[in-house]
């Protein structure tokens, strides 16, 4: 679908995330201000348990926010039906898919659901998008394999291919590089950057690969539990934001090389 409205942004203001149980709220993170433009690759980084996945799941409307706003362009996500949202945001979560008996191509084809008829019949255009996603993720030789026959890394790529096939202006990926080897990590991040630029998408992902994010991403949101700085990697380096991520007696950040020293 070509929903390339001009100057679409994904923007959060004073966003608080966490969990609500019966009568209490568990706050995970607050004061999150993120502003991503079309064509940008954005990384969400931070230490374990700081709320990266919670934020991503909140952006994807998988779980409700506690306070603040999330907007796509001028529309508040709260006011969108899940059907309309499906052609705006696609997601890859860390949770496993329910049925591993699907083949790769069937899995990727499910990404076309928002555009198919009531029976889910795939049109020529749908099939082309499915093929495109499979090619981009180098899954051609695996496309008729069942998901339970794939390695974790291959399944991860298949899930990304599905999100690409959904062809939405915003793509949210929760730790997309976790199960990948170094080659595929770099390749996929470079590819995501390329896709974001070429097809005018906002791609937001959480990651622990901070050094790779510094080199490849357009913007970084650093969850540190206080101010949660957001900006271009070199801006954040200048603000000495990365120094504060880990305790300084164990790991230090070298601003000249943009890498950590143990």
């Amino acid at each position: 679908m070509d929903s390339k409205e001009q100057h679409i942004t994904l923007k959060t203001e004073n966003l608080s995330i966490g969990y609500t149980s019966k009568n209490s709220e568990i706050l995970v993170a607050k004061n999150i201000d993120l502003n991503a433009q079309l064509g940008e690759l954005v990384a969400i980084i931070g230490i374990n348990g700081i709320g990266k996945s919670t934020l991503l799941r909140t952006l994807a409307q998988v779980q409700p926010k506690l306070a603040g706003t999330i907007k796509i362009g001028e529309t508040d996500l709260n006011n969108m039906k899940s059907f309309d949202l499906a052609s705006e945001i696609s997601v890859v979560l860390t949770e496993p898919i329910a049925s591993k008996n699907l083949t790769v191509i069937e899995l990727v084809a499910l990404g076309r659901q928002p555009y198919t008829n009531w029976l889910g019949t795939l049109s020529e255009q749908d099939l082309a998008k499915v093929k495109e996603g499979i090619t981009q993720m180098e899954l051609g030789s695996l496309q008729h394999k069942k998901c339970h026959e794939l390695s974790d890394g291959q399944l991860q790529r298949a899930m990304i291919a599905r999100a690409l096939a959904q062809d939405t202006p915003v793509i949210l990926l929760d730790e997309p590089t976790t199960h990948l080897d170094l080659y595929h990590k770099v390749r996929i991040l470079k590819l995501l950057k390329h896709i974001a630029k070429e097809t005018d998408k906002i791609i937001i992902f959480t990651t622990h690969e901070i050094e790779m994010a510094i080199r490849l991403c357009d913007e970084i949101l650093l969850l540190d539990g206080h101010t949660n700085p957001f900006g271009k990697p070199n801006e954040l380096i200048e603000k000495k934001a990365f120094e504060r991520i880990f305790p300084s007696d164990t790991i230090t950040f070298d601003p000249d090389t943009g890498s950590f020293r143990i």
């Binding site: 994807a60 998988v62 949202l85 052609s87 499910l110 029976l119 889910g120």
Partner: peptide, 18 residues
Amino acid sequence: IKSLNALLLGENYARSLG
């Protein structure tokens, strides 16, 4: 039928597919 197919991915993915 369409919802059932989406549910093969799990509830969260099904919702993200609209």
